[in-house]
Design a protein around this nucleic acid. Sequence first.
DNA 1: CCCATCCCCTGTATGC
DNA 2: TGCATACAGGGGATGG
Length: 302
Amino acid sequence: MPELPEVEVVRSGLAPALVDATVSAVTVHDARALTRHPGSVEDFEHALRGARVVAVCRRGKFLWMPFTPTDGSDTARAVVAHLGMSGQMLLRASGAPVERHERIRLDIDHPDHGALAVVFADQRTFGSLALDPLLPTTDAAPGGFGADDATVPAQVAHIARDPLDPALDETRLRTLWARKRSAIKRVLLDQTVISGVGNIYADEALWGARIHPETPADALSARHATRLLAEVRSVLDKALAEGGTSFDAQYVNVNGQAGYFAHSLNAYGRGGEPCPRCDGELRREAFMNRSSHYCPRCQRRR
DNA sequence: CCCATCCCCTGTATGC
DNA sequence: TGCATACAGGGGATGG
């Protein structure tokens, strides 16, 4: 469910409690939350117990937390988290009751904040935690937001940098867009081209740039591509400032609170309603097993 | 290689 | 009320 703004809200909420904290206990309630973990459940628990968290980082929709090894091995590893459609990372008081859909709990001790519980809860179980080795980035820039060294977890290496990353290679992005014949919306959702954009913000950015979602990416002019990237950044920035988009209790910050950006959506979820810009009727149609929302009047097919 | 389809899973809303 | 169906913000595997 969560896209870049929602994941960034979680990252920034976790960081003050997790950086410099030591993991005192690991409880795996449901092994399905470790399907992406390359080792066993026991390996996950054992490697994390006693580890000290060094940073909380994000690229696109992926989170990771590098930690100091406890077993004397020299391979640096990180806890990688992906929230999937319904994952939550919650900060709770130590000993707080088990949450609904709780899959994994990390008990931590922080030098300033004392004992806390970090709960990974996930209704639909598309999300996961994993331990993964850290690899050097190919461009020698920091791995992501919140990272101070040039490494990314192996599982994140194929994910492109996101629109808010200062190290995003815009030339590469424009080259990829200019080469792809697929619909621009599909390309926006391709996390190996640019990361962090999901169904909501793809629809919002295309609405903002007045581009029809089925426009072939290679048919976009340089001017359109510039406008689209600016709209992507703008909508992600605004959503982040509002604490993200919450339609229901699924997306919440680390304290269980909803964001406010759902009130600011112009196209997403508004099929049949008037376009806020031109008063035409917004349309909702099936797209890639999901839905696209756009205004056929001011987002003309070219 | 590129692209489109299908799959994983659970809960809620809707229609018959 | 009960049941079936569609749908939901994700990524990855797997075919053509």
